[in-house]
């Protein structure tokens, strides 16, 4: 598979993580998102109509949504189906957190882009999404799990991890969110895990 990506993008990190956690080989094709804004140029828009990174290509298939690409990598590369749903209930729960990753959590990525590159951003709902994910982890811990869904790491965790792990870049303190700090620590202990620049100690 070919990954069109940028080293500083949290959505691209998400897919690199999935490849690494599954021990899969892939080809990285860097795109000059910054400072060149190549992701906004017509050539790239032919691949990704919203002008967003990452883009995943597998043969004739082109996937330009990070959550869809994450699911695709896991379904292709994980013979044991450990990272994806094993039941209807799990699928509903995983889907919920994938939607959070592609929706409200984008506020964190936007705050980070503002701090790094001076992009305009709105902070609406920024702390709400942090709080809600922290609540989920703390409840899961009472049930004896360290993970967002069920009792094992799934693509739900991979989808949410990058933006939370990059909280420092976004100017968000996790001092008060000890559930999130424990979850980040558990995730960073997974075999195959690799950090990216801006991922704080855990």
């Amino acid at each position: 598979m070919i990954l069109y990506e940028h080293v500083l993008s949290s959505d691209c990190y998400k897919l690199r993580l999935m490849f690494d956690l599954l021990g899969m080989d892939y080809e990285r094709r860097p795109v000059d998102m910054y400072p060149g804004h190549a992701d906004q140029k017509p050539a790239f828009r032919a691949l990704s109509p919203f002008g967003r990174l990452p883009v995943l290509q597998d043969g004739n298939l082109t996937i330009w949504d990070a959550q869809a690409a994450l699911l695709y990598i896991a379904e292709r590369g994980d013979a044991s189906s450990s990272w994806t749903a094993r039941s209807v209930e799990e699928r509903a729960n995983i889907q919920t957190w994938l939607q959070v990753a592609g929706g409200p959590l984008r506020a964190v990525a936007a705050a980070r882009a503002r701090n790094l590159f001076g992009d305009a951003s709105s902070e609406d709902g920024l702390l709400d999404v942090i709080t809600i994910i922290d609540d989920r982890i703390v409840e899961q811990e009472i049930h004896g799990s360290e993970w967002l869904v069920s009792d094992r790491p799934t693509i739900a965790d991979v989808a949410v991890f990058p933006d939370i792990a990059l909280h420092e870049d976004a100017g968000i303190s996790l001092d008060a969110y000890c559930g999130l700090r424990r979850w980040l620590g558990a995730f960073a202990s997974l075999p195959g895990f690799a950090p990216m620049p801006g991922v704080a100690s855990m």
Partner: peptide, 16 residues
């Protein structure tokens, strides 16, 4: 400054 699991064995965090 927190519950027993505010900081886990082998971890560090900031408290104000």
């Amino acid at each position: 400054v927190g519950g027993w699991n505010h900081v886990q064995p082998g971890a560090a965090c900031r408290v104000e």
